[in-house]
Amino acid sequence: MSYIKVDQISKTFKVAKKKSGLKEAFKSFFKREYLYVEAIKDASFEINKGEIVAYIGPNGAGKSTTIKILSGILVPDSGKCKIAGMIPWEDRKKYVKKIGVVFGQRSQLWWDIPAEDTFDLLRDIYDIPNDKYQITKKNLIEKLNLKDIINIPVRQLSLGQRMRCEIAASLLHEPEILFLDEPTIGLDAISKQVVRDFIKKLNKEKNTTIILTSHDMSDVTTLAKRIILIGKGKVLYDGSLQKLKSNYIKEKTINIETNDKINTKKKGIKKVTKTKKGYELVINQDEITINQFINYITSKVTISNIDIEEDNIDNLIVKLYQDYNI
């Protein structure tokens, strides 16, 4: 039995149609036209305890709606959803004790007072026994390196410092599931790294199930083994990142530095262009593996340097979006 089971959930929003122009504004004042937007349609997936899943898709694909349904804020129009043996929107108070939610774009900390005060308030909100609270807090302070910033009013913190406090605030009650909605948005490289490392550690040590949305593909690659791609409200792909990569990244660009001339018509080599120090080649991995290619090329010419391009996950995603027409 999976830990999180989402079965065919759908959710449609009714939004008032807005047209530009004063005349249209008057018209809609008297007669509203409504548009029905299917934010999410027959989405199904299952997640096991302790998994880290990245939930990706372009803006407006239905990511936030899904997170809101899973966290019990929204009730879907149809479909079933069972998480940790509970239906999220049914027993709200009991359910939310098991989950933690971080919204990257919204703060749950009080702006004018130090984060520690918010933590103390959260202890009362979640009815955490004091001794347990002190241990958890100490632990989080240590791991997220909050010691020096926890006593400063939140408004004076940098974005990265604030995000670390946000994450700590969401974990004080030691939730079994953590939802991270764009946790690294707007952070600098170091802060991103701290946040990622922490999430990884948390998953390993506490076996916390983590569902994460992000537009930052390096978040996805470093954290999640599994991704769920959503577009136009539908689940388009659900599986390992590795598989997606090998399915989608067929062409690879390789740079070779050499003084010799390359003049080849070998199958699998798609493009050869002369560069300053050598050549740039594009190969199709279906027809020739990198290994085969290197064997072949070294038999032909003497190379002084070789540079194989990293898989660019951003490009992959763009391509995916194009292929699925989302």
């Binding site: 966290s71 804020i73 009991k94 004790k97 919204r106 909100i125 009815d127």
Partner: peptide
Amino acid sequence: QGNFDRLLLRPKNILLQ
């Protein structure tokens, strides 16, 4: 401001929050 969502995520009475 969308902060109402946050209240729904906490295990206490909404009006009290």
